[in-house]
């Protein structure tokens, strides 16, 4: 999965916000709120297409977390972004 082009993410306070700009803004008019983990995943797939397994390895390398939990988080993350029309 990869984030579609035209999204911008910024850190704000203790969270992260992302919006669509340029032509993408014609399709997507919402506001995405993320925590640090979400932003971590987002930034990984901003430029590169990565599979869920690749993301899982990256998360396990970076965070000290149970594999099952990380997998569930990534699944949920992917589902939400897909529903929002944010990933291709």
């Amino acid at each position: 999965m990869k984030i579609k082009s035209g999204f911008v993410i910024e850190e704000v306070g203790d969270g992260y916000l992302a919006v669509a700009v340029g032509d993408r803004a014609d399709e997507f008019s919402g506001l995405v709120r993320m925590n640090a983990t979400g932003a971590f995943l987002w930034k990984l797939i901003e430029e590169r297409d990565m599979s869920k397994d690749e993301l899982l390895s990256a998360v396990l390398r970076e965070y000290d977390v149970d594999e099952a939990i990380a997998k569930a988080d990534i699944d949920r993350f992917e589902a939400q972004l897909r529903e929002g029309g944010i990933i291709e």
């Binding site: 306070g13 969270g15 916000l17 919006v19 669509a20 700009v21 506001l31 709120r33």
Partner: peptide
């Protein structure tokens, strides 16, 4: 309501 709940809001221009 976004500002009330989260304190911040973002948008494109």
């Amino acid at each position: 309501s976004e500002l009330r709940e989260h304190g911040v809001y973002a948008s494109n221009t």
